[in-house]
Computed example of a mutant assay.
Amino acid sequence: MSGPPSPLIENYLKEAGFWHVANIGRGCKLDLKLISVFIERWRPETHTFHLPCGECTITLEDVQLQLRLPMDGSVLTGSVQSAD
């Protein structure tokens, strides 16, 4: 896992409501076998997982709920210029 976000962008992440997203997964151990099973069951042509109980897909609402992303603010848009 990578380290915490740079202190230079910490306030921007907090202001945008994304600070907790930048810290997701800290201290979590990945289950590589479980990840492999999901990769094997992914069908890119339908964007679904084929499981014994049926088809399953992940929606934007699922992501919003799991990551606790705010849905009541203004849209955040902008461009980024690379230093390269």
Rank of each mutant, 00 (worst) to 15 (best):
K29Y: 06
T59Y: 11
D72G: 06
K33N: 15
W42Y: 05
Q66G: 08
E10C: 03
Q66E: 10
R26D: 10
L30S: 06
P4C: 04
L69M: 12
P4H: 04
H20R: 12
P5Q: 00
L30R: 10
E55R: 08
L60V: 15
A22I: 02
N11L: 08
I24Y: 11
V63A: 12
S74D: 14
V80N: 00
P44V: 07
A16D: 09
S36Q: 05
R68M: 14
Q81I: 02
L67V: 09
Q66K: 12
F18K: 01
T48P: 06
V80P: 00
M1V: 09
G78D: 04
V37H: 07
S2Y: 10
G17C: 02
L60M: 15
A83C: 13
P52Q: 11
D84S: 11
I58C: 08
T46N: 09
P52N: 10
A83K: 10
K29L: 06
T77R: 15
A22V: 01
N23G: 03
P7C: 01
F38A: 13
R41Q: 06
L65F: 07
G73R: 11
T46P: 04
G27V: 06
G17R: 01
L32W: 11
K33Q: 15
V75F: 12
L34D: 06
R41K: 11
